[in-house]
Amino acid sequence: MNCSDVENRLNDYLDGALAGGEADEVQAHLRQCQSCKQQCTSLEQILAQASSLPTETPPNSLWQSIESELDRVPVIATTNLAGRFHDWMSGLTAQLQVPVPALKYAGAMALLICGMLVGKFLLPLPEGQNQIVAPAPAAGEVQLANRATSYIEKSKILFLGIVNADLEDLQNSSWQSERHMARGLVREASFLKENLSRKNDARVRQLVEELELILLEIAMIEERQDLNNIELIKGGIDRKGLLLKINLADFADKPEAQDF
């Protein structure tokens, strides 16, 4: 073997990937060639150092930024999804008959969104139960506040599901449940805008409108979206700090809204 033969085999030699005969030949050459020997030693030192580089510790600020991200976009606990979904559906049915503050169902609805988290829309809403939103009563103040709270909470759950999900999963999903939910909420938004305008509650009304813009985008979305559109929606939610605003929204029954 000459020097260039050895140079070509040096990596395999050091990795123990040479057949016995070849390895012996390389070894024999290294014993008599100072220049190849030097190359071999350098490489050995580099590899020894590479596999024992000192461990470095990340700065404390790393956890702080992780934690603030966790606070901004909470992780939704996911257990026993299918069972909880049925609970939610029966809860929804009950809700349509008896007007109960929708917030009670917020936790269960979060589990619906878990379906989106996993990225598969396994459980589309059956037809006939489309009406997520209760039919409009002649709204008293309490009822109006409840409906506004419910609208905001449902939007939040929908957004959380989208923000939490992988882009890839969202790209491949049918968007059926989201579209569905968003359309119901857009209908509710127009009711709220009409009625809230007379309530002097400018802040709530503004939030309703901001949420509606994103809801409209979701309501219009087609199956198998390209990444740009999805990133646009995600970005819209992010940019407007909507999740944060929802958390800060000042409603009478706020304590329940803190559930997740």
Partner: peptide, 30 residues
Amino acid sequence: FNIALRMTNQQQEAEDISQKVFLQIFRKIA
């Protein structure tokens, strides 16, 4: 952090990647 640091050899990028990793762990652990 050290895997990310070796792969990028940039402190800031390694921190960004580590943050992504842990957020993904927490979101996907289910």
